[in-house]
Computed example of a mutant assay.
Amino acid sequence: MASAREGPDAAAFRRIFEAVFDDLVRFLERRVDEAAVDDVVAETFLVAWRRFAELPAEPSDVRPWLFAVARHTLANTRRGRRRAHDLALRVAVQPPRAADDDAAAVAYRVDLGRAFARLGPGDQEALALVAWDGLNPAEAARVLDISTSAFSVRLSRARRRLRKQLEPRATEGTS
Rank of each mutant, 00 (worst) to 15 (best):
A48R: 07
A48W: 10
A48H: 07
A48D: 07
A48V: 09
R51D: 13
R51S: 12
R51H: 11
F52L: 06
A53I: 07
E54W: 10
E54K: 10
L55V: 09
P56W: 09
P56L: 08
P56T: 06
A57R: 11
A57E: 12
E58P: 04
P59Y: 12
S60T: 14
D61V: 04
D61N: 11
V62S: 04
R63A: 15
P64R: 14
W65P: 02
W65C: 08
W65T: 08
W65R: 09
L66V: 09
F67S: 06
F67Y: 13
A68V: 13
A68I: 11
A70W: 08
R71Q: 09
H72D: 10
H72C: 05
H72P: 01
T73E: 13
L74N: 11
A75S: 14
A75D: 15
A75Q: 15
N76H: 15
N76Y: 14
T77M: 13
T77E: 15
R81S: 07
R82V: 13
R83A: 12
R83E: 12
A84N: 02
A84S: 07
H85N: 03
D86G: 10
L87R: 08
L87F: 08
L87I: 02
A88Y: 06
R90D: 06
R90A: 05
V91I: 15
V91S: 08
V91M: 13
V91Q: 09
V91F: 11
A92P: 12
A92L: 11
A92M: 10
V93I: 02
V93N: 05
V93T: 07
Q94D: 05
Q94K: 08
Q94R: 06
Q94W: 04
Q94C: 03
Q94M: 04
P96V: 05
R97T: 04
A98S: 04
A99R: 09
D100Q: 04
D100A: 02
D100W: 03
D101W: 02
D101F: 01
D101Y: 01
D102T: 00
D102M: 00
D102F: 00
D102P: 00
A103Y: 00
A105R: 06
A105M: 03
V106T: 00
Y108F: 05
R109N: 02
R109Y: 02
V110Q: 05
